[in-house]
Design a protein around this nucleic acid. Sequence first.
DNA 1: CGTCATATGTTGCTTAAACGACAAACGATG
DNA 2: CATCGTTTGTCGTTTAAGCAACATATGACG
Lengths: 207, 207
Amino acid sequence: MLQTEVQDVIQAEAKRDPRITRTRRLLQNALTELLSEKNFPDITVGDIADRATVNRATFYAHFEDKYALLKYMAQERFESALSAKIERAPGFTLANLRLLAVTAYEFLGGFMGHCAPSGPPSSNDHEAIFAMHIQTCIYEIVLAWIRALPPHKRVESPEVIAKVTSWVIFGFGFQANETRQPKRLPPETLADQMLPVLTAGIGALLA
Amino acid sequence: MLQTEVQDVIQAEAKRDPRITRTRRLLQNALTELLSEKNFPDITVGDIADRATVNRATFYAHFEDKYALLKYMAQERFESALSAKIERAPGFTLANLRLLAVTAYEFLGGFMGHCAPSGPPSSNDHEAIFAMHIQTCIYEIVLAWIRALPPHKRVESPEVIAKVTSWVIFGFGFQANETRQPKRLPPETLADQMLPVLTAGIGALLA
DNA sequence: CGTCATATGTTGCTTAAACGACAAACGATG
DNA sequence: CATCGTTTGTCGTTTAAGCAACATATGACG
């Protein structure tokens, strides 16, 4: 029953037994609840399973450990937030890239720095872990977009482009939310600062 | 899988598969949600099952029809509201009788007359059906209390006593909430009006 | 009246979740 | 160091939930 990441995505397309969807939703909600009560390291798999009214063995049937669940949550929520923004056809366009960035910045701003100097420093650990998965999400989305480009626009190494793009988009937003700015820039502003540099590159600045 | 009422109570004591508990909770929540959106007659079994993320066949494995679910909800919630009030040992005492009445009046006041002249008259139907089940609840609780009386206090026909008691308690509260009073009496006042008459009877008033 | 669509129950088979038990890793405590 | 309690993964068996298909109602509309 345990799924690898790739099989997971494949199965997401195919019709899934509704019990699977429901169980994962219960587990997600359970972890979310627990995170508002205590820190991630203090939460056990048993806690999550109990809260979700799910057997502990069932948890392991879906996720390797609690980190895998956290990762799944990050991806799941980010992708649903994005697909809510992109009604039109997805694809490697400037407009979509901007939507992707804006979504990422809204998303990162949404949960980062919720309990900064108040809580103990360890309480921010799971936020960082959680945030890092967003980069993977962005990478995979961009990669898929590039691979779907029409033949005459094909590029040498989609992976390299996707890496650069995803890290710029992600890192820009991560840093903006990590350092506790007095005034936090709106997601759109962040995106519009980042995009020209990303598209034009820094070659012209070199001596 | 379908359970009769009595088997149900029995199984409630024995350990139940958590899936059963969870499924019923999902169905209850689904119906509650739907009732806030449309009237009971307009809700289909399919609607409830969909909202609960449960198969329609599974619904029928638990309840005969939507009325059975409504009844189950009424009983379930009333009994949990009562047991929250009675921390001490249950039993046929004046104090417990008062708690039972107060709980009933709070409960009836809680959902009756929520959409009185605003909604169509048919929208109150399910409220009445729902309310009537409370009488059954009260009856069964009182009956159990009487049957648990110590041997020297045994009574001829527990059923008759339970019927009278339950109908007085219930009817008193039903009428108070049904007729839309300008000022609604608090549950405790209702209970204290009703109790002396119930305990002393009306014999002394007869010519 | 017929018929078309929808809702209701029911059934046999498939699949995911529950359970208990297990070995192993870990951390605290004596 | 040894030991205890807890958490972690895993496995085989049992059981409840999903599903598709079916035979009825029920009800609106031409």
